[in-house]
Amino acid sequence: MSSKSSGSAQLRSLKIMGEDVWKNRTEKVNAELFTLTYGSIVSQLCIDYQRDFQKVNKQLFSMGYNIGVRLIEDFLAKTALPRCENMVKTSEAISKCAFKIFLNMTPQVTNFSPEKDAFSLIIDENPLSDFVELPMDAMKQLWYSNILCGVLKGALQMVQLECDVWFISDVLKGDAHTELRIKLNKVLKDEIPIGED
């Protein structure tokens, strides 16, 4: 009982921290500019790869990966969060702090696997895909926000969590909601001995 209440207290404090950092400690940029920039990246990639959407997906993922490995330092510098002991805590930190600080949204965490090493993030309003409608051929194959998968994979890798991240469904493809799945493969133990994992 006491651990449950301390768990919810921790959740609340993560939420408060995320909101505090978002409101008071980050410089902001115009959201339309952001959406338009991302949109132009995706459409240019489609043109460059001659509408081979598998390649575009891959390229978006690797771009996201490069962003993620650098963004994690920014996240840690702003929040100084201690190491998460398990994936439950990690999922809360990702949804309540990280997404809040960088994209001003809090995706819902659901669908935990029985071993608690995989979970889904349900995104209600995706700022990357405001005003976007996919053409018919792209609808079948393109994961528009695939950059997010890359960012999460890169960032988690830098804190020694080797994960697989992929989209399950996307409203742009006609599905009911946008769902992202994160699965922990292993913890990279060749880490610097500073604390327990």
Partner: peptide, 20 residues
């Protein structure tokens, strides 16, 4: 830089370095 306000952070923080 990207930190709004007059200081980078304003609260006490956990030291990540436990046994090094």
């Amino acid at each position: 830089g990207s930190f709004k306000g007059d200081d980078y952070f304003k609260e006490p923080f956990q030291n990540w370095n436990k046994s090094g």
